[in-house]
Design a protein around this nucleic acid. Structure first.
Length: 811
RNA sequence: GCGGAUGUGGCGGAACUGGCAGACGCGCUAGACUUAGGAUCUAGUGGGAGACCGUGGGGGUUCAAGUCCUCUCAUCCGCACCA
């Protein structure tokens, strides 16, 4: 029977019956935890992106098994989140119902892929047996001072009366009703990830992650060294603290700027400036942070009417507000040095604020704004110092008067985890009128998410309108109290799921310490690079926090990280329903079978780059698969003129066989599936050639075919299983180990050395692989083309890189 | 704006640490087989008649550059409430 979907089904059934992929921690072999980022069950079907992430990663897991590891390869569902809720608002179908249905479909499809997941180790984050422990995690963070409440702005649509996610804000307006979005402050929960800023940064060095991803995290953490400087003001009680990376320019400060939303603004605004300040603050409400950070936008701002005093020279400078200062970074106030900062320069020019140059280049010809290194001028006792010297000297001087110190600032902000949404894990906290904030006792977990809730947007957290949910008794004093109505960001659910998998059924704890210490860290984590900053940094933070609470004993959750690329639509754009350029895997699976589809995904694209979908390529793989089938059928029924000799033809076959095993081993190990499959094609080409030889060494031929089936088995699990059976094997090919190649088969008697004259390839000479450099030289010189090229020339230089190249320079 | 990438034949993509650019495949061309061919098999295939020229473009380092340095152009992705 030719390979088809039917063969997939036949083997999927047998594997399931035989429990082929059941994980058993007692199995021999070193543990190997390989993990793909779990999927979000937003639509009913697995899309191409899922396939491209999961199918090759599954092949990798299978490969690791063949190498003798005891592979742990779980899969689950990140099931809470906004899309299910929005879908419910649109269709009236409850998020729980649609999510459970989607999960069932996706699970079935994952099985059709032929993946090795053991569903006994799985999580669904929206189920109480999981989110009970998400809530437990929240409580541990709270107990350890890592969860706290503070006011923070949200995107607010006054027409829909609801909080909007950033993705629901299009060009500053609500995606539904186009109302201009404003910022509204709400009291919300935060996780103190900033406590771990330094460790999250340092830990990157120990990880086998793509360099680009490490850079993204480094920039996200955004460490910068500088100084915090205190400016006294006319208002004796209130100081302004600024953070600057350039304390050396302190004498060049001509004004200070506060973020418009800063609480200090009210304290400094003089009555005559009140109106302008209020208007300006109103305008800022509508801007996104990205807009505010843009240096292209014209700077705007307004004067508060008050003045601050420069601590280094006592100069009085005006206090302004401007949206280019962000409340969330540094102290939310900056000292402006227009002569040496481009943004300040522009701002000062626009509002005709003075500029004082305090740094000059060595020639004394610097043009403003001058942001390079240089020598201090106009800075009293600091004149003549270099920038580096001045930084230290000025910090030291400020320390004397207690008005400044060296400090480190991070861009990393605490993690806002409150969501005014329904479809999420309820935050396990209670507000008691007498006792204040009281955590739900662990024995009362989970705080169940009620099913019957009005979650259509009307200005309040949906749970707030559910009386049965909200009303409870205070665990401390027993009086009536109200629950926290917000739910947790789904990133909280996904920040610890990899810890739950190995002990997924534990009813007493989130996970058993011994088990996670044994199974973790994840050896290889595969997922999209869009998670480079958020999910991956949150998960690292949670791991470190749990380590400090002694729930586990390792520092990093994911030792190696691989990002798969993205498959684009045939038009080269990101696939989207609205563009109508989506490609549905199912039609291809039906037509060609899962393995052809898997092989095409692996062969047609670089795994880390992805690229636009092309229909033609899949036919080529289908052809390849039948070519192999035809070959094996033919070999099985042909009566060959047999030989037992190992001659030239056999040596060539042995070489290709060993080379293929070696290269595929290397390539699959580093997720280079396209080149691995290319090598497998070379072996098939060689087999076809050999099989048509006059005399055939049948034993060698069959052994090579067996090796071929084995090394293809991680990549095409159903197809190879069928072939394995065809050649008469009773057991599953997936119980086989990866074959060993023979070093001596790879040894060639003669090698080819390219010869360059003046950098240009002139000839290729054949030499014995053991030929000495002196003899190679002689052979090169005897070559007629080379001799011709060297005629009447003087040799100026000769370079021989053994076994690689021979290079001659003449004049 | 900030941050991160990418750019190689007609196409998808190879090229380890600087060492014969274009592996493998698609497509194309020719031939074989066939009642037929959008099936299969065999051979060829970067460009150019050629010396030579070729990895987005310009400069550089080197015996040798897709790979290193420098400038530049184009495209894609992320930016903290999508997951």
């Amino acid at each position: 029977m030719a390979y088809s979907k039917e063969i997939d089904k036949k083997w999927q059934k047998k594997w399931k019956e035989g429990n082929l992929y059941r994980f058993d921690e007692k199995k021999p072999g070193k543990k190997f935890y390989t993990l793909e980022m779990f999927s979000y069950p937003s639509g009913a079907n697995l899309h191409l992106g899922h396939w491209f992430n999961f199918a090759p990663a599954d092949s990798f897991a299978r490969f690791k098994s063949m190498q003798g590891y005891n592979v742990f390869h779980p899969m689950g569902f990140d099931a809470f989140g906004l899309p299910a809720e929005n879908y419910a608002i649109k269709t009236g179908i409850h998020p729980q119902d649609s999510t459970i249905k989607n999960i069932a479909t996706m699970k079935k499809q994952l099985e059709e892929m032929g993946a090795t997941y053991d569903w006994n180790y799985s999580v669904e984050t929206c189920m109480p047996d999981y989110y009970k422990w998400t809530q437990w995690l929240f409580l541990q963070l709270y107990k350890n001072g890592l969860a706290y409440k503070k006011e923070a702005p949200v995107n607010w649509c006054s027409s829909c009366n609801t909080v909007l996610a950033n993705e629901q804000v299009i060009n500053g307006a609500c995606e539904r009703c186009k109302t201009v979005v404003e910022k509204k402050k709400l009291n919300q929960w935060f996780f103190k990830i900033t406590n771990y800023a330094e460790e999250l940064l340092e830990g990157l060095e120990t990880l086998d992650w793509p360099e680009a991803t490490k850079k993204i995290q480094t920039n996200w953490i955004g460490k910068s060294k500088g100084a915090e400087i205190t400016f006294k003001t006319e208002n004796k009680d209130i100081d302004i603290k600024v953070f600057t990376t350039r304390p050396d320019t302190l004498c060049g400060v001509t004004y200070v700027v506060l973020a418009p939303e800063s609480e200090l603004v009210e304290k400094f605004t003089k009555p005559e400036c009140q109106k302008a300040v209020e208007e300006y603050r109103q305008r800022t409400i509508h801007l996104s942070e990205i807009e505010r950070m843009s240096t292209e936008r014209t700077k705007t701002g307004t004067f508060t009417g008050s003045y601050a005093i420069n601590p280094i020279n006592g100069v009085k400078v005006p206090i302004w507000i401007s949206d280019y200062v962000l409340e969330g970074y540094g102290t939310g106030c900056v000292m402006a040095v227009p002569a040496h900062d481009e943004r300040d320069f522009e701002f000062a020019k626009k509002y005709q604020l003075p500029m004082i140059q305090v740094i000059d280049n060595r020639e004394g010809t610097a043009e403003l704004p001058y942001v390079e290194d240089g020598i201090l001028i106009n800075s009293n006792q600091f004149n003549g110092l270099t920038v580096e010297e001045a930084k230290k000297a000025i910090e030291k001087e400020l320390e004397k008067t207690n008005s400044g110190k060296e400090t480190i600032s991070y861009k990393l902000k605490d993690w806002l985890v409150s969501r005014q949404r329904y479809w999420g894990a309820p935050i396990p906290m209670i507000n008691c009128p007498d006792c204040g904030l009281v955590p739900v006792p662990e024995k009362d977990l989970p705080v169940l998410l009620p099913y019957d809730v009005e979650f259509k947007p009307d200005g309040e957290s949906p749970l707030k309108k559910c009386k049965e949910f909200m009303h409870c008794t205070c665990p401390k004093c027993g009086k009536d109290a109200l629950r926290e109505p917000d739910t947790l960001d789904t990133f909280v659910c996904s920040s610890w799921y990899y810890l739950r998998y190995p002990d997924a059924k534990n009813e007493k704890e989130a996970f058993n310490k011994e088990i996670v210490d044994k199974m973790l860290p994840v050896d290889v984590y595969v997922g999209g690079k869009e998670h480079a900053a958020m999910h991956l940094i949150y998960a690292r933070f949670i791991t470190k926090a749990l380590r400090d609470m002694e729930y586990l004993d390792f520092d990093e959750p994911f030792q190696k990280l691989v990002h798969q690329g993205m498959i684009l639509g045939p038009d080269g754009n990101k696939m989207s329903k609205s563009k109508g350029n989506t490609v549905a895997p199912d039609t291809y699976i039906d037509a060609y079978g899962s393995d052809v589809f898997r092989l095409y995904l692996m062969f047609g694209f670089s795994y880390t780059d992805g690229g636009p979908w092309k229909d033609e390529g899949i036919k080529a793989i289908s052809k390849y698969v039948s070519r192999v089938e035809n070959l094996i059928d033919k070999v099985l029924k042909t009566n060959y003129k047999e030989t037992e000799e190992v001659g030239e033809a056999e040596k060539s076959l042995l070489y290709v066989r060993s080379n293929t095993i070696k290269c595929m081993e290397e390539d699959i190990g580093i997720f280079q599936f396209n080149t691995a499959i290319a090598r497998s094609m070379e072996l098939v080409n060689e087999l076809v050639k050999y099989e048509s030889s006059e005399k055939v060494n049948k034993k060698l031929l069959m052994e090579t075919i067996e090796d071929y089936i084995k090394i293809m088995s991680p990549l095409a699990p159903h197809f190879t299983e069928e072939l394995w059976e065809k050649i008469g094997k009773a057991e599953s090919v997936h119980k086989e180990l990866w074959p060993k190649y023979k070093e001596e088969d790879l040894h060639l008697d003669t090698i080819e050395i390219p010869v360059q004259v003046n950098g240009k390839l002139k000839a290729v000479v054949k030499v014995g692989s053991q030929t000495s450099p002196e003899d190679v030289k002689e052979i090169v010189k005897k070559n007629t083309t080379i001799a011709e090229a060297l005629k009447d020339k003087t040799i100026k230089k000769e370079v021989y890189v053994p076994k690689k190249i021979y290079s001659i320079v003449v004049s």
